[in-house]
């Protein structure tokens, strides 16, 4: 609250804060269509490698007929990805993390 202590000799103009993404990083970029393309491709990659979470997300949505259909599709999709071996990195990372979480100091039980 207290960037505060500059003298107020100047008129009290509203402080317009600096851009979070500075100008030097905004000189190059893309269009809204490129944003959409990036997002769509990222989502497809995510659907391939994080199919486990897609299935568990649909399970949390409820039990309307549409959701039940979505759950079935998500479960089948997850099985297909598992058959292709694409869920292995996800499981390996989770296993590794579990081991890290279980680490204890010598003095700890």
């Amino acid at each position: 609250m207290v960037a505060l202590e500059r003298e107020l000799s100047e008129p009290a103009a509203p402080a317009i804060s600096a851009d979070a993404i500075p100008l030097r990083l905004r000189r190059q970029g893309g269009t809204p269509r490129q944003v959409l393309a990036t997002m769509v491709i990222g989502t497809i990659v995510l659907a391939l490698f994080a199919s486990r979470d897609l299935a568990s997300w649909t399970e949390r949505l409820g039990d309307t007929p549409a959701v039940l259909a979505a759950q079935k599709i998500a479960a089948e999709w997850d099985q297909d990805m598992a058959a292709l071996g694409l869920t292995r990195p996800h499981e390996a990372l989770r296993d590794g993390l579990r081991r890290l979480l279980d680490l204890r100091w010598g003095s700890q039980r």
Binding site: R24, L25, Q28, G30, Q34, A37, T38, M39, V40, I41, G42, T43, I44, V45, L46, F49, A50, D53, P89, H90, L93, R94, L97
Partner: peptide, 30 residues
């Protein structure tokens, strides 16, 4: 941050999307 941003500046949209998707999948698994 600037250096990392500069390294990917000229990457195509599909490459950025794929890389971001993989990183999100890793973070999600962790």
């Amino acid at each position: 941050f600037d250096r990392i941003a500069a390294a990917f500046e000229r990457a195509p949209a599909w490459g950025l999307g794929a890389a971001a998707g993989i990183v999100v999948a890793v973070i999600n698994a962790l």
